[in-house]
Structure formats: C-alpha cells, structure tokens
Simulated assay, not measured.
Amino acid sequence: MHPVTLDGTEAAVHALARALRPLLDGSGGSAVLPLAPGESPLDMRRDLPVEPGTGLIVRTSGSTGAAKGVLLSAAALRASATATHARLGGAGTWLLAMPAHHIAGVQVVIRSLLAGTPLAVLPAGGFRGRRFVEAASDVLAADGPRYTALVPTQLTRLLTEGGDALAAARSFDAVLVGGAATSPTTLAQAKDAGIEVVTTYGMSETAGGCVYDGVPLDGVRVRLEDDVVHLSGPTLAHGYRLDPDNPAFTDGWFHTSDLGRVVDGKLEILGRTDDLINTGGKKVAPTAVERVLTAQAGVAEACVVGLPDPEWGQRVAAAIVANGDVDTASLIAAVRAQLGAHAAPKQVHVIAEIPLRGPGKVDRAAVAQLLASAATSRTRGNNSSANTPP
C-alpha cells in the first residue's frame, strides 16, 4: 500500500500521478491510498495484505457513518476515465480545481495521465476567481478540448464573481459539476452565462461520476428498486477494505442510499433515503424543498433538514444563503403551494454560507445543529429565524 498525502501543493499532486502511472499502464506499482493532510493510514491496516486486484483505495467522506476504504481496480479507473472522454468529445487537457484525495480529484489526475496531457493544478488556499483564472491559463492555451471539474459551491462563486473568472469558466469545453446536488437555478444561470456545464452523479464506489446529465456512461447500468438507485458496470469498485461481505455490493451491483426516478429517459436524484423527513407520518424529500426554495428570487443556496418535534416527530427546517432581499413567509408559501403543507418549512434561517464537508458535500448534521441553535435563540428573544406553527 502506497499512501500519498495531498496537501494542496502541485508537488503532492504530481507525486500522486507518479504513484498512479505504473498501475494504469500495467507496469506494476502498489495500491495507492490518497490522504488528506493529517489523515492516518493506520485504520487501513497496512500490516495486512491489500485485497487482490486493488489499484486505488479511496476513503469515503464518512457522511453516513464511519469512513470506509473503497477498493478500485486499475481497470475500473481506466474504464471511468475512458468513458468520460468518450462522452465529452475526446481526451483533453484538465485543470484540477478540487482536493485530489477525493475520487473526483483523483479522476482528474487519471484522465490527464491517460490523455498524455499536462495537468494544471489550482493550489490549495481558498477558491477565488483570480486564482482560478491564473490556474486555468495554461489549460485554456492548450490545443484540443479543455476540461475542469467543480463542486456546486465553486460554480456559484464563479457566477457571483463574474468578470475574468466567468470568462475563464466559459472557455472550457466542459465543466463537470458534481459531488453534491446543484440547484436548477444555478444550472440555468451557468448555461445562460455560456458555461458548458455537465452534471455528474456517482461516488467513490463507482470510480466517481458514472451518470452524466442523467444518462449513464458507456457500460454503466442503472436500476431502481423501491425508488432506490442501484449501479453496475465496468467502473464499479470490488468492495470495501477489510469488509468482504458488505451487502452494499451484491451480484455485481452497488446499492446506493439515493432515491431517484427516471424522467424522459434521464435519471433524477431526489436525495438520500436517510435524509428523508418524517413529519406527522408524511415523508418529505429535502431535495424537493430545496429546489423550490432556490427557484425563488433572492435565494442562492438552501439546505433543508428535519429537526426533532415533540408533536410531529420531525419538523421541516431550512437554512438559506441569500443573494438579495428575501421574504421568508413568501418562501414558505411557495413550498406549501408546490409541495403541500406538510413540506412547508416551519423554520427558515438566513446564513452566510452552507457548511460543507468532503468534496463540497453539504454537512447536513452541521446545518441541523445550526438551525436547532437558531430556534433556541429565537425562543429567548432572538428573531433571526422565521417560524410558522407546525
């Protein structure tokens, strides 16, 4: 096992590339374990043999429990990168703009290696338009297709900043956006601005994004069982480190915890099963409420969670980031009109930014804590939240 600590520097990213190269070209090498600064490989038990066929071990974010080590073969990594290039229009030059210890970042490195093109790296230190422009300059000067991958928060910042940052984003032949749900409003704004956005859905267990703009990559299969998404195909991992019997992998399929539906032949993700809010015996999908909220004027981002309620079991609560004047009563009324009274937030709280974890994923636990504290403050006379009776 070959641990590589990614500290955000270009040197660390190139060290990762050197470790991955022999695995991808079949010349040998040890299974690579990318690590964030301060992470330890000890829980991966380096004293025990790595499972056969493993080229890369990626730690999950741990957003739904203890972090796990996802086992990916070199074949799965190559299949993912090859299918991505085929979908986008050919191999090209990439800008790495996200942490390389997550699968989305690792895959940018792998695509660059397989394409044989120089990799540009956005150094750690905060995502700002000026730094994005500087990092993108060499990529945008290259011949052939130019690509990058962002999380929704990064895309939102580029849209907000405008100017040279927006012009740079517009110059890429494709900007993959994934790692978390992107609001329809943000996508519409990006497309109106001329950015070639491609939404991606996938996870470490599928070697990264495996469904682009709702359509599976070549070889990837999707099925729904009780509205839960199951995935299969050549990009699939072969299990978890030191957990050979995990039921998430069964008969060549990975059972996600995501709810989905197919609309006009395209997969639409509705949220996670464990994020569903049970209020008064009715189920509310937070993603559906978030889509209504972010479609309203003045709302840039939204996160909806369920908070404990002595009468209803849970109550719907929302944290929003505003980019203009907002009337919380109107927001609540909009959700009620579109989704029903049971889905209407009983609490709306305006915050500066949505807490994130991992590769741009919303930290719903942190949002729930924030909203619970806001509700407590309001009962003590702080009117920072808008509430309606349950």
Rank of each mutant, 00 (worst) to 15 (best):
His14Cys: 05
Ala17Leu: 04
Arg18Pro: 01
Ala19Gln: 09
Arg21Tyr: 10
Asp25Phe: 07
Ser27Tyr: 08
Gly28Ile: 12
Val32Gln: 07
Leu33Met: 09
Gly53Asn: 09
Leu56Cys: 10
Ser61Asn: 11
Lys68Phe: 01
Gly69Lys: 13
Gly69Glu: 01
Leu72Asp: 00
Ala75Pro: 03
Leu77Asp: 11
Leu77Gly: 02
Ala79Val: 04
Thr82Glu: 14
Ala83Ile: 02
Ala86Ser: 10
Ser112Leu: 03
Leu113Lys: 00
Leu113Gly: 07
Gly116His: 03
Gly125Glu: 08
Asp138Thr: 15
Asp143Phe: 00
Thr153Ile: 12
Glu161Ala: 14
Gly163Leu: 10
Ala169Phe: 10
Leu176Ile: 15
Val177Met: 11
Thr185Lys: 11
Thr185Trp: 07
Thr199Pro: 01
Thr199Ile: 13
Thr200Met: 15
Gly209Ile: 05
Asp218Trp: 01
Asp227Glu: 14
Thr235Leu: 13
Thr250Gln: 15
Trp253Pro: 15
Phe254Met: 14
Gly265Asn: 04
Lys266Asp: 00
Glu268Phe: 03
Leu270Ala: 09
Ala288Ser: 12
Arg291Asn: 15
Val299Gln: 11
Ala302Leu: 08
Leu307Gln: 12
Pro308Tyr: 05
Pro308Trp: 06
Asp309His: 13
Pro310Lys: 06
Trp312Val: 09
Trp312Met: 15
Gly313Gln: 01
Val316Leu: 02
Ala318His: 06
Val321Pro: 07
Ile332Asn: 08
Ile332Thr: 09
Ala333Glu: 12
Leu339Tyr: 02
Gly340Met: 09
His342Val: 07
Ala344Ile: 05
Lys346Tyr: 00
Ala352Lys: 12
Gly360Ile: 12
Val362Tyr: 02
Ala366Thr: 07
Ser373Leu: 14
Thr376Asn: 09
Asn387Lys: 00
Thr388Trp: 09
Thr388His: 04
Pro389Ala: 05
Pro390Cys: 04
